[in-house]
């Protein structure tokens, strides 16, 4: 295997020129990328570190909300006072990711751009994502794979932060050599039926530089729950973030987002519709749980996720009630 050049540009402009000239990979915290290189999934000739680019490590609150630089670490999000006070959903989700060591190194940008954990993708299988002709999960070991939005590839998106950020209506600022754009985070992720080889809209040479989180309404409430097999240090089987604005106990607006169930962080639009204009009674919560999984299509070994998702949504709503 060839070695790689390691470059630490000081500006985005420099980073763009490096990325267009060679077959390079961006590296932020590196906790996902190093694993991919070690496991032989990718073999980049150039790593472009974002660490020395000014401004990517800062986080600040403005009138309209929070601006989080892509290189802010999950540990910083977990312990920041402003986040804890005004955006506790983000702090809660950050605290559930991996371990203290990984949270101290892993960045919010990297967390949103991390590659799937599917064992066929990570293993020695030439699957669809790697240019092969087959999704091995379809007829293989698929207990951790998607129940919603799957096909032709059946990965689940591993990010906890994406789930929380989507529930808060966050957007992503992306900069490329030809300009910049800000896209709602929902539009940032890409289903395999659109492009099986990537999980985000980022084109080669584009860089996710900032996450913007609108300031929650004063009457808004939220919950984050992550179900996993171990008590710590594990990816979600199913996670749920709920954000709801109520007036006189009637739900004006609800956003329900699930992780671990689909190739992208999954917004449960049907559940949200079932909640709008209702008060959170037992039957309404049950209906919202059912609506979450109406479209679910399990593979041979992951039907349990349907029950898990349905009941977790009910449980989260009960906490909000």
């Amino acid at each position: 295997m060839e070695g790689f050049v390691y470059s630490q540009p000081g500006t985005l402009r420099e980073a763009f020129s490096l990325l267009t000239n060679k077959k390079g990979k961006l590296v932020a915290g590196g906790t996902d990328l190093l694993g991919e290189i070690q496991d032989g999934i990718i073999a980049p000739g150039l790593l472009v570190s974002l660490e020395r680019i000014q401004g990517l490590k800062t986080m600040r609150e403005e009138k309209n909300g929070l601006r989080i630089g892509a290189l802010v670490t999950l540990a910083e999000l977990e312990s920041d006072k402003i986040v804890a006070e005004h955006y506790p959903l983000l702090a809660a989700a950050a605290g559930e990711v991996a371990t203290p060591q990984l949270r101290a190194q892993a960045t919010i940008g990297g967390n949103l751009c991390q590659r799937p954990r599917c064992w066929y993708y990570r293993g020695d299988f030439n699957c669809l994502k790697k240019g092969g002709a087959v999704c091995y999960a379809e007829d293989g070991e698929n207990q951790y794979h998607a129940i919603l939005g799957g096909g032709p590839c059946h990965i689940v998106h591993p990010s906890d932060m994406a789930v929380a950020l989507l529930a808060m209506g966050a957007s992503a600022r992306v900069v490329g050599p030809r300009g910049e754009k800000t896209v709602p985070l929902e539009k940032f992720f890409v289903l395999p039926q659109v492009d099986v080889k990537r999980e985000t809209i980022l084109a080669p040479g584009e860089i996710l530089v900032e996450i913007r989180v609108p300031k929650p309404l004063p009457e808004a409430r939220w919950v984050f729950r992550k179900m996993r097999e171990r008590g710590a240090w594990d990816f979600a089987l199913v996670s749920v973030a709920a954000y709801a604005v109520t007036k006189d106990k009637v739900i004006q607006e609800a956003r329900i987002v699930l992780g671990g169930v689909a190739p992208i962080p999954w917004r449960a639009v049907r559940a949200e519709q079932a909640l709008k204009g209702k008060t959170l009674t037992g039957p309404v919560m049950r209906l919202a749980g059912e609506a979450t999984v109406t479209d679910a299509r399990p593979l041979s070994q992951n039907e349990y996720k349907i029950r898990l998702a349905r009941n977790l949504v009910r449980q989260v709503l009960a906490t909000l009630a």
């Binding site: 590196g30 906790t31 190093l34 060591q101 190194q105």
Partner: peptide, 8 residues
């Protein structure tokens, strides 16, 4: 605290 195996 960081993992030395995850740092280049």
């Amino acid at each position: 605290p960081l993992y030395a195996c995850m740092v280049l």
